[in-house]
Amino acid sequence: MSTDQQLARTRGRRWLVPAVGLLCGVGYVAVFLARGDPGMAAGGFAIMAGYTLFLVLLSRRSEAVALLRGEVEDERRQIISLRAAALTGHVLILVVLTGFAIELTRGNSAHPWDLLAAVGGVTYLLATVFFTRRG
């Protein structure tokens, strides 16, 4: 892919995350209005709109905000994004395993921690096999 094509793709992707953010805000409005809670509807939309505005206004000044906005156009930013995703995954797995162990020691059912741990474990296993074969 040429540099021009990459830049065009990146420009298009720059608006994807803000658009999804606003869409989530609209989703909050729909869900909370359906539940008869206009305060939470307005609050949810304000939070998502504020976050979207934060991304749009500060992505030129901060590389971290640019990454949060989805501007992952070069190899270094892709590596940063992968590392952040991997760390997030590790923290989530640690939380799930801790929840699983706590529920078991309390003598309770480990549900839904057991299911989450199983999904995490199987995904990690399959991903390892897939990426090993892919080289």
């Binding site: 540099t3 990459q6 830049l7 590389e63 640019a66 156009e73 070069d74 190899e75 270094r76 930013r77």
Partner: peptide
């Protein structure tokens, strides 16, 4: 080079 300014700096 098709990379960001920050990547050149890094």
């Amino acid at each position: 080079l098709g990379v960001s300014r920050q990547t050149v700096n890094a």
